[in-house]
């Protein structure tokens, strides 16, 4: 065997190790679209909250401090429920988009969308995600609305971090970025929506584009 043969062997080994252990069909484009959905959602939510703020300011300002009335207002107001539904719709649409675009990419590679790597990826992604999701519902139950944004960011970041070993490595940095954003957000509780828009919107667009140019366009 010549040196060329050995080099070919090694690149084949690398390729097989990647293909067999990682879900490489994850579409970067779906990340970009998820980011856009999140920004649209944040825009809608901003409009709703802005209206609520005005109504609270005019009717309840004299009772307690503004912050307190805002927190109670969110918890008791039907808007809290409306926001939850909005977030759920965005999540479902983003997941469906990711599924469709990744299937297309998998087909192009001649890979299967549903195999051992997909199962492992989803399992490692869902454990932190559902823990965070349930914790978020509990916090809404106790009216700790201010912590919802940072907690969702942190747990989503953890989910990406934990899943990154089983898919494209860039997902790890998306995870770390969201964890950091979430932690910073804990010190600026009133600005959850902005952090959400950055974490779920802008960061998805940035990392989605990175992945799109790095892997999809080949």
């Amino acid at each position: 065997m010549t040196q060329q043969d050995y080099l070919k062997d090694i690149s084949e080994i690398k390729d097989l190790m990647n293909k067999s252990s990682r879900f490489i069909s994850l579409s970067g484009l779906s990340g970009i679209l998820a980011g856009i959905y999140a920004l649209i959602g944040a825009g809608i939510a901003y409009g709703w909250i802005y209206d609520l703020k005005e109504s609270i300011e005019t009717f309840e300002y004299h009772e307690t401090s503004l912050i307190k009335s805002l927190i109670n207002g969110y918890a008791q107001h039907p808007l809290g429920f409306k926001l939850l539904i909005l977030a759920m719709i965005i999540l479902v649409v983003a997941v469906i988009t990711a599924y469709i675009l990744s299937s297309i990419k998998a087909k192009k590679h001649g890979a299967k969308i549903w195999d051992a790597t997909t199962k492992r990826l989803l399992f490692n992604f869902c454990v932190p995600l559902f823990s965070g999701g349930i914790l978020t519902l509990v916090m809404m139950q106790y009216g700790l609305i201010g912590l919802v944004a940072p907690i969702t960011l942190i747990f989503y970041g953890l989910a990406c971090f934990s899943a990154s070993k089983y898919t494209l490595g860039d997902v790890k940095y998306l995870g770390i970025t969201n964890i950091i954003l979430g932690l910073i957000n804990t010190q600026f509780l009133g600005y959850g929506l902005y952090f959400w828009a950055i974490g779920f919107g802008v960061m998805h667009i940035i990392y989605g584009s990175l992945m799109y140019f790095k892997y999809d366009r080949k």
Binding site: D9, E12, I13, L16, M17, S20, S21
Partner: peptide, 9 residues
């Protein structure tokens, strides 16, 4: 070589 590569990871 391929079989072993897959089983390594």
């Amino acid at each position: 070589l391929g079989i072993m590569s897959v089983l390594m990871v």
